[in-house]
Design a protein around this nucleic acid. Structure first.
Lengths: 224, 224
DNA sequence: CAAAAACGATAGTAATACTATTATATTTGT
DNA sequence: ACAAATATAATAGTATTACTATCGTTTTTG
């Protein structure tokens, strides 16, 4: 059941040629995920990627307009995949509070096991999302990118979890604010723990961040 | 009382030559604040700044090693200044809950009036902090920058507000997480409201974000 | 008023983020 | 099986960015 193959569809606006459609395309995705993880998004370039996969830079440009679009592609893939995970984890769970709890776990924790089937390493990809995804939408051309649907899958995840919040507390005025605060917060806190520990607290166990945001939500929505 | 001049001291590690010490230095600061606001940090370059202030690019490099360091200088200035504002707003307020409330207002709202005395336009600077400051520490060399004290003033603000949280609820385990979540969250929500509204909620009045985070904190700490 | 420091003007470099061209290899429709 | 279409490799080239270096002139300061 765990290993059934699902096909992640990414909006056609996010690539020139679908990387899923060829060997080279898949190599571009899998290798870029590894490289961005190792060197960070700024240091990563198409030239370096070309050398790593033994293809000229110009071939990569046939798949992606530029490296920002590649990052958006990756985040889009991640959030589409994550929405599947949310659906899977919440179907047949009656209690909305329990469903919300499950969702918070999924959105606040990096992925720990790769399914080993596709060319996308989900563990490394989730690391990228946690540490680099905000660079996908913190640019001068956000609105343009947003207009062509670049952030649709992320927004969809926020909407889905917000819907559960509204189910629990229909009078709560800021469900989207709450959920995007939790998602972005969880990413940041992990980053702080690794690089700027003074901005966060001693992480006793690896679930501390999830625990914190669960509590935050339960208190805010008066659950239990 | 409002207009008494305070001298903001920025760590000497953050500049080559103190921009506060010369006409050119002050022009670099005031003009870069305007330009970063207008065009965003990515589009801003020392070459463009040089043209704007009618000085060669190389003169700017005599003050700042590079544009990232300039951004860190600006954020450092802002947080040092903000800590003064926090002190001013909380001295002689006995109730810690009331002090915390005041602090949340200050850290979640952009500045609205400039003191018109110094060469630093605080209104524009706070806009930069809200929309661009995360770029100051989201780089490959964060730890190196952190080691030389680049983020000291930001950490100091987080610490100060966390101390109030601990005063209110000494058993609360995650005061720094809570406060940095609120600061970063407020910045992001403002950005979302402007560029990606689906990730936030209808902002009825301009204090909606502050209201949201005040409530979040009050609920989390069981205040009132 | 002499020495030091700051500034302006100009030039130059390596890296980045692309675009363009053309020959070769591979796929695919019939 | 083969011609046509498509994909890729190889190479070259451009504009911009992020600097560094040099040097003559002005300004400051002890």
């Amino acid at each position: 059941m765990k290993n059934l193959q699902i096909q992640i569809e990414v909006s056609t606006e996010l690539y020139c040629k679908n990387p899923d459609s060829s060997e080279l395309g898949r190599k571009i995705i899998s290798t870029s995920i590894e490289m961005i993880n190792e060197m960070g998004f700024e240091s990563f370039t198409f030239k370096k990627l070309g050398i790593a996969i033994n293809s000229p830079e110009s071939s990569i440009y046939r798949y992606f307009k530029n490296k920002q679009t590649l990052l958006i592609y990756l985040t889009s893939w991640y959030w589409t995949w994550t929405e599947y995970r949310l659906v899977l984890a919440t179907t047949n769970v009656k209690s909305p509070a329990e469903r919300l709890n499950k969702c918070i776990e999924i959105i606040t924790q990096p992925v720990e096991v790769d399914d080993d089937i596709s060319y996308v390493n989900e563990v490394l990809l989730s690391e990228i999302i946690f540490s680099e995804s905000l660079k996908a939408y913190h640019t001068k051309n956000v609105e343009e990118k947003n207009k062509i649907g670049s952030f649709k899958s992320y927004k969809s995840v926020v909407q889905r979890v917000s819907d559960i919040v509204m189910e629990i507390n229909p009078l709560f005025e800021y469900p989207h604010m709450l959920i995007s605060t939790v998602i972005e917060g969880a990413h940041q806190q992990k980053y702080f723990a690794e690089h700027l520990p003074a901005l966060t607290d001693k992480i006793k166990d690896k679930n501390a961040i999830t625990t914190f945001y669960k509590e935050l939500i339960n208190q805010t929505l008066n659950i239990k």
